[in-house]
């Protein structure tokens, strides 16, 4: 069976083609050029303009035609309303035209499942950090339970907004990572609440601090503080859930320093560390296609009418029938 998956919850648009054996035949992602923050309507326009050529490219890469595809999957949420709707419309149109079953799937769960597929992690604690999401989840009795998460803004959002305020450029992550190399530590607020954390106070303080000390110092300290908070929350969740594996997901964990810190924490607790390849770490279509296959094989069905998008869709609301 072959599934074509479309991802488009935020500024990235992705098309992935995956077989039921878990072979990724194509996985093509298009990043929207970002100068400022994400404007939902502009992002939606970007997706609408690029979906056709991207589909074509992915099919060519996979060497399959739409007649050979058995299932259409798309990211149904959580995400930006206008973006979700563009993707849903494209998916519905394909399903109708080629008379294919369609499944709208959860973006956050897709990150976890593509990670399990590509790394072989079996029952991991997942540390997922991206522009719009920051959460620590683990499977317990039929669901991915959220053990820790941000109470306000996401880690990626915090770093990107910081870079924007200081006019360092976009996307902020890699720029801040580079500048941080020559910095030294200045104190910033470290806010962990139980297994949850909060980044909005850190963002405000970092922007303010940049008026007093060098940008490099603030970048270094922002990273060290924000990452240590996330790693600590992951560590608490690991001790709490007693899982033996840690899987990373999301665009922010591409950051070397963050990975190094997570590895070190895992070593201390004797947990195995799993990092998926870069092209499936950030938002991508293959993860949507793979979750489409898992859902389909576990008997899930949706009619076109029940494929309305869900902007706020918690990870722990999804029933995991395939495990």
């Amino acid at each position: 069976m072959i599934c074509l998956g479309i991802e488009g919850t935020a500024e990235k648009l992705g098309v992935g083609i995956v077989t039921s054996d878990g072979e990724i035949l194509a996985n093509i992602t298009k990043h929207m050029p970002l100068r400022e923050g994400i404007h939902p309507r502009e992002a939606a326009q970007h997706h609408a303009q690029n979906i056709k050529p991207l589909l074509k490219k992915a099919l060519e890469k996979a060497g399959v035609s739409l007649d050979e595809v058995d299932l259409i999957a798309f990211s149904r949420g959580p995400g930006l309303g206008p973006c979700l709707r563009v993707v849903a419309v494209a998916a519905r149109a394909l399903a109708l035209k080629y008379r294919l079953p369609i499944l709208g799937v959860n973006h956050c769960v897709a990150h976890i499942e593509i990670g399990r597929l590509t790394t072989g992690a079996e029952d991991p604690l997942t540390v997922y950090a991206s522009g719009g999401n920051t959460q620590v989840t683990a499977y317990v009795e039929g669901r991915y339970r959220v053990f820790g998460e941000t109470l306000d803004i996401a880690l990626g959002n915090c770093i990107d907004q910081f870079a924007r305020e200081l006019e360092l450029g976009a996307p902020g992550g890699p720029i801040v990572e580079k500048l941080a190399r020559n910095g030294s530590y200045v104190e910033l607020p470290y806010v962990v609440k139980g297994m949850d954390l909060s980044y909005s106070g850190l963002l405000t303080a970092a922007v303010k601090k940049a008026k007093e000390v060098s940008v490099a110092d603030v970048c270094f300290s922002l990273q060290e503080t924000a990452f240590a908070m996330l790693v600590e929350v992951a560590e608490r969740a690991l001790a709490h859930t007693e899982k033996e594996e840690v899987l990373i997901a999301g665009g922010v964990v591409v950051n070397r320093r963050l990975q190094e810190m997570l590895r070190s924490m895992c070593a201390e607790h004797g947990a195995a560390f799993f990092a998926p390849p870069r092209d499936v770490l950030g938002d991508n279509g293959a993860m949507i296609a793979w979750l489409g296959i898992l859902s389909h094989n576990s008997g899930m069905k949706q009619s076109l009418e029940d494929t309305h998008v869900i902007q706020r869709w918690r990870t722990d609301e999804v029933e995991v029938l395939w495990r």
Partner: peptide
Amino acid sequence: GTDLLVFRKSVRSTHFR
């Protein structure tokens, strides 16, 4: 309020039954 939220969320993840 945050203190209570932390409690409520931990009940949700750990004592969901």
